[in-house]
């Protein structure tokens, strides 16, 4: 447990009769950028709100830095910065005043407000009313608010929402810098895999409240390695034959067998071998899933 910044153990959460989060066991290692992926309505924001104790979780299911959240709320929140959904900004105050208000609440020096404005590139708009900010500027101000207490753990709910390509790249670089140079742990949610792929070290994929995949980004990539799918008759004995010939079978249905793809030549050799041994190969093709499709597959089939 000591190595995880966030750990949930079989977390369940309902709104009335509606199950939002089901048996969720997140494990976010310290120092990682954890991409929390899922389509809209998958339960990402609810999970983040549970991690902030905005929604009350059942006892002994949520641990932040190894501490149970309900009984250590204040101690945990001191170490956490968050951006949930739309950034929470007072429209009638300027960007700087919003940050100063946060400094007051957190008991930190007001000079921090200027530092944060510079960090997210809002120095010039510091004295402009926040209601006049563009969506991207609001998002940046939200990130500045999350960072102002210098928290060890950052929970960012779709932080690049509404940002232009430049802004997206800036946020991405900022996250990488925070994790590598300042050893922060970042949980960042998104419904775009491409977004997560570029920054995350770990990935959790959630759909309909259930965690469908969790692991390092490399493990996710492994899942998307090219495969060779072979459709042929007499599939059971073919399976045994292929295994005997030294191939690993990844999947076998009543129509086709999937093995890792290595090269075209190897595929040809296997084809010849199968035909020579009396199997009828109706099709043999390379299947390459990019992560986007993989993500769609993972989330669709469940």
């Amino acid at each position: 447990m000591g190595n995880y910044a966030i750990e949930t153990v079989g977390l369940n959460f309902n709104f009335g009769n509606q199950t939002i989060v089901k048996d969720l066991s997140l494990q976010v290692p310290k120092g990682s950028i954890y991409g929390f992926l899922g389509p809209n309505g998958a339960g990402k924001t609810t999970t983040i709100k549970i991690l902030l104790n905005l929604l009350k979780s059942p006892a002994d299911q949520v641990f932040i830095f190894g501490k149970e959240i309900n009984s250590n709320r204040i101690a945990i929140l001191k170490r956490v910065g968050a951006l949930v959904e739309q950034p929470a900004i007072y429209g009638h105050l300027t960007g700087k005043e919003n940050l100063i208000n946060r400094c007051i609440l957190l008991g930190i020096k007001k000079i921090k407000a200027d530092e944060m404005l510079a960090l997210v590139g809002l120095t010039e708009a510091a004295n402009k009313k926040a209601s006049k900010y563009s969506l991207g500027m609001k998002q940046r101000l939200g990130i500045a608010q999350a960072l102002i207490s210098d928290p060890e753990l950052l929970l960012l709910d779709e932080p690049t929402n509404g940002l232009d390509p430049n802004g997206i790249i800036e946020v991405r670089n900022l996250m990488i810098e925070l994790a590598t140079k300042h050893q922060k742990t970042i949980l960042v949610s998104s419904h775009l895999l491409a977004e997560i792929e570029r920054t995350a070290t770990h990935v959790g994929i959630i759909n309909k409240g259930q965690l469908l995949f969790q692991g390092t980004i490399d493990e996710l990539h492994l899942l998307s390695k090219p495969m060779l799918e072979i459709e042929l008759n007499n599939i059971e004995s073919a399976g045994a034959f292929i295994t005997k010939a030294g191939y690993d079978i990844i999947a076998q249905t009543d129509k086709k067998i999937t093995i890792p793809f290595t090269s075209s030549q190897k595929s040809g050799e296997l084809n010849t071998l199968l035909i020579q041994n009396g199997f009828t190969v109706s099709s043999l093709y390379q299947q390459k899933k990019d992560l986007e499709n993989l993500f769609l597959d993972i989330t669709k089939t469940h």
Partner: peptide, 18 residues
């Protein structure tokens, strides 16, 4: 209303304050 209007209740209750 200052919190309702700006949707800031969540921010307020996510602060390390009782």
């Amino acid at each position: 209303n200052i919190e309702h209007k700006n949707d800031t209740w969540k921010m307020l209750f996510a602060q390390p304050l009782n």
